[in-house]
Nucleic acid binder design. Structure first.
Lengths: 338, 338
DNA sequence: CATCGCCTGTATAACGTTATAGAGCCGTGC
DNA sequence: GCACGGCTCTATAACGTTATACAGGCGATG
């Protein structure tokens, strides 16, 4: 099909190996030879056959980013950053959608099925420490966003408990006392939900507010629809909350919708806070106060760590990195300022 | 590294070629032999080395979906569908972000630079017929969503003019007479914007309404921010519109935001319609009336066409396929019903 | 002047797969 | 009894690259 090493070698009158060395810089090549080869490459328009290169090297140059939902803007924004960073490092990123399915996560972790990927960035939601530890094949693994700790892999996330604290402190500071949480989840799934609930409880206690289990709404998933349903349930309580903290921005936006439909004013009657700082929250009515993780840092760091591991480089620092976050006040808590 | 064909061949006591035939079904294999080989495969946990397969076959099994913005929910939703369809056909889909950059689109079209992809699905916005015709390498090409016609490639899109007609007819039907368009674009870029403006003008004429150039707002890009800015400009006119049709849902949502900030009621003062039917529009306040393309059909068809071309299959039917769309009425035009 | 080592460059063997040519076996038809 | 064709299966040559071992030339060193 295309132009290959042999063509270049013939044109430049050198051996295959020399051309390869010019292309890869693996061994020094004399200046005159290099120029002849480079000229031949330019003239014939050579680009290496990646399949062959990868067969020989044992690596494909592909890394995967597996997320529970592609359509969650948080992950779309993260993916955009990760794709750019991967490209800058000479890798191609493929997106995988686990659809928050345990089987899909396990299949990715197993890694033996598809030997096409050099390494994996995974946002796990249905697997825990044990399943992660069971990974033996498939190359390096970087975990993002969840609370699977004590595994021999890089793990990049915000401090979920501290993030909750910040959100609740803000709601308390603006005078709210019946603060609900939307997005708790039963069992061992979705560690981050447990951590965010923990932060919520701790912050309530620190503020001297009672913990009311009925104000903690469970959801099956974490989309707008789930947030709306949960908010409706909370509103149906005899004594509804005066503030809501959502597991993420999508849930919070669903809650905003339920509040609007029920005729409640935000933030006057109910204040709302989310997590993720997706662009949608800057244009919702009202705009959404949120905990903003540093998505750029998370995306770039995850890719850089993974690539470093793949290439066998020494990586300094601890496996677990907590990236910074900040509270962004907008209309849904009555204190616009973004 | 992993288990390979040779291991299986030894274990089953047959030749390499026989194992390959069992795996690929390329040539018939005796029932007893097949079972022995299959057993060996299961026991050793063999999966083919894709790099080697692809080197030999000359194909990589990778296809690319290149879109102008990953973070536009329309493309995220489309990507989710396309990824699933590609997986079902045994292909891996990689996302490319052109960022609506002409250079990026040209580089993808050129195809000679990265020989890793078997074919490309492109949503072009900055290249036209000429640039598409110049493509000679890089495998089959499927275009989605824009108005580049008369090229020897599959092209899948809605009828942009008809979609505009439907939107404007609806606005006229609910009594609007000063209807604005947000998202026109100068020059030859973004064919679909031109087509949507054309549909807008034709529909106005058909309704006996005058075409007012000042009510057609240009934008540089097509996000929420652009919609808000354009809406502000329209509101600053002496005689602002009583309805707005946005180039897409994001622009329309930006317009909603500008209207809310300026204290206008939607739909009472100004009605708003978008295109794309992204989930966000079902939860905005007010919910957004929109033209809903059949994303599932577009995504699946694009992938199926591309794969068929890659595999050299005969593809029946015309190159250009116009997929169906429908008007979804929601609160922003005062006629909820979704 | 012989030896050593560095510097360039070459020849060649993998990497794991698939496609092609052909070998062995068996039953069929003359 | 023998040629023949149809089935299975095997041996092997690619695919394009990189890494290893090696060869030749040349200046420096003893």
């Amino acid at each position: 099909m295309g132009v290959n090493l042999k063509d270049i070698a013939q044109r430049a009158g050198v051996s295959l190996a020399t051309v390869s060395n010019v292309v890869n810089g693996y061994r020094p090549v004399g200046e005159r030879t290099r120029q002849r080869v480079q000229q031949a490459i330019d003239e014939l328009g050579y680009s290496p056959n990646l399949g062959a290169r990868h067969l020989r090297r044992g690596r494909t140059g592909l890394i995967a980013l597996a997320v529970p939902e592609l359509t969650n803007p948080y992950f779309a924004e993260l993916a955009e950053i990760a794709i750019a960073e991967a490209a800058a490092l000479g890798y191609t990123l493929v997106m995988e959608n686990t659809a928050a399915d345990r089987g899909a996560e396990l299949a990715l972790l197993d890694g033996s099925r598809r030997r096409i990927i050099d390494g994996l960035i995974l946002s796990p939601v249905r697997v825990g420490r044990k399943e992660v530890l069971a990974r033996t094949a498939g190359g390096p693994l970087v975990l993002i966003g969840e609370g699977v700790y004590d595994v021999p892999h890089d793990h990049i996330a915000i401090d979920n408990v501290a993030a909750s604290h910040a959100a609740i402190r803000h709601l308390v500071a603006i005078g709210r006392r019946r603060i609900a949480f939307i997005g708790a989840t039963p069992g061992g799934d979705r560690q981050s939900a447990h951590l965010r609930v923990r932060g919520y409880r701790e912050a309530l206690a620190a503020a001297g507010l009672p913990y009311r289990p009925r104000l903690v709404a469970r959801t099956d998933a974490f989309g707008r629809l789930d947030g709306r349903r949960a908010m409706r349930e909370l509103l149906a309580l005899g004594d509804p909350p005066d503030a809501v903290f959502g597991y993420n921005d999508l849930v919070a936006i669903g809650a905003l919708r339920a509040l609007a439909e029920a005729g409640h004013r935000v933030p006057e009657d109910v204040a709302v806070v989310g997590i993720d700082d997706i662009e949608e929250g800057r244009f919702s009515a009202p705009t959404l106060t949120t905990i903003a993780p540093d998505k750029r840092e998370i995306g770039r760091l995850a890719v850089r760590r993974l690539v470093a591991r793949i290439e066998g480089a020494e990586v300094a620092g601890p496996l677990t990195v907590q990236t910074p976050f900040r509270l962004v006040r907008r209309e849904s808590t009555g204190t616009p300022g973004d």
